[in-house]
Design a protein around this nucleic acid. Structure first.
Lengths: 225, 225
DNA sequence: CTTCGACTATCAAAATTCGCATGGGTGACT
DNA sequence: AGTCACCCATGCGAATTTTGATAGTCGAAG
């Protein structure tokens, strides 16, 4: 985890540097807004800690300009003032958290950890199987990074197959997972959808991701490289 | 945005309920840990505010158990105590933020917004998506830098879509985040609001930002240049 | 190796479901 | 009383799903 600390009081700066390093972080330092913005642009930090009371460009502005430059790492601002308006202003500038000086180091650490934890848990859950990938939160299938538009049931079918790769899935099983309760089992819906999926996924029939196992069902074939 | 407030002091609870509602949130309430956990399990909140001083199951435990159940919504804990150990403990239990009582409502609001923003992967309070930009602190939508006046619900709909760009969002999901519990799910409100938004956002139908995915929901389309 | 029967693929029409526009009604607020 | 936002019911049009018929393929048995 690499973090940036921006603080003009050199005593505090070094103290924080030492503490965060002792906690296993890689720490970069800056002592004014100019340098801070440069560093933020240059490196991809996991988090930044910024004092609002900086000479020339103040902390609020650093945050604002960083956000305008599309820098999205979590930011904690440090404020010496106890007026809630300042804190609100900080958050509205685009900071994620603030801490009022003086503070104990443990509290800073706890907040840093909480923010990093949260910003890590944002990736959308994507299931990758060979050339196929499924973004289950966006309900979107990609074949070789190309988005493929599916209808509601087509999506349900491929989703179920992707959840059970390299496994023979019977048509009964699929029907039971895709439709809620009583559905006419001797219908060829699944065959129809598998057919449509095959055409959409791979027109030229080069990938052959869905294999038919006569009398048993289907299997999503994945080359586990 | 739908939030849960857990607090045993009924006076404060109602006060917060009223305030957060006035700020455009859909609010559910709970006055003990038992109910809170049930609610958290049952609904998909965008955020929870939990007092640590609850009878029977205390706030720390609620957070801990919620996280153990894989509930990942942002959580702010309220603590009456000013001892930093308590705050650190809260964050270590899995909370994302804390606020020390007494606090001014504006400060709570700023933190709530900051957390929701971050959990949507949005660092800045201004969300830019193609020709659309949304100022979440002013509750104002702009289309090509032009302000567009929206009603309360129209705003909630576009906000939720902007927080989930390029993602298929089902109508159920939208209803659940926009209204608080007990709302008739099979109603066509969402369709009506989407229709009105489309007309307001782009009269001439050139931008087509909101795409319909039959049987699945809607998707805010953003050209990721 | 061939044949037969069962299983699967494909197609297009039919049936169904879904989404949208519209207008009326209700309740809140002025 | 008037305005405004919102909710609800309706009916049309369109996209999707289902059906049923037909053609094709596979594999086991002879």
């Amino acid at each position: 985890m690499r973090i940036l600390i921006v603080e003009d009081d050199s005593r505090l700066l070094l103290q924080l540097d030492q503490y965060m390093q002792s906690q296993g972080f890689s720490v970069d330092l800056a002592d004014d807004g100019e340098k801070a913005l440069y560093q933020l642009q240059e490196y991809d930090y996991d988090l930044a800690i910024i004092d609002v009371g900086l000479p020339s460009i103040d902390g609020f502005e650093v945050v604002q300009r960083a956000r305008a430059m599309d820098i999205s790492c979590p930011i904690i601002i440090l404020t010496a003032r106890d007026r809630w308006q300042e804190k609100v202003k900080g958050l509205e500038c685009g900071a994620d958290d603030y801490l009022t000086k003086p503070f104990v180091h443990e509290e800073l650490l706890a907040r840093v950890k909480a923010l990093i934890r949260r910003s890590a848990g944002q990736a959308s859950p994507i299931v990758q199987k060979g050339p196929l990938s499924l973004d289950t939160s966006a309900n979107q299938l990609y074949v070789n990074e190309q988005a493929v538009e599916l209808t509601a049931y087509e999506y349900k079918v491929i989703e179920y197959l992707m959840m059970n790769p390299n496994k023979v899935v019977s048509k009964t099983e699929m029907v039971e997972h895709i439709y809620d309760q009583d559905f006419d089992l001797d219908s060829n819906v699944i065959e129809v959808f598998v057919g449509r999926l095959r055409r959409k996924i791979d027109k030229d029939n080069i990938i052959k991701p869905i294999e038919t196992l006569r009398g048993r069902g289907y299997r999503l074939n994945v080359n586990l490289q």
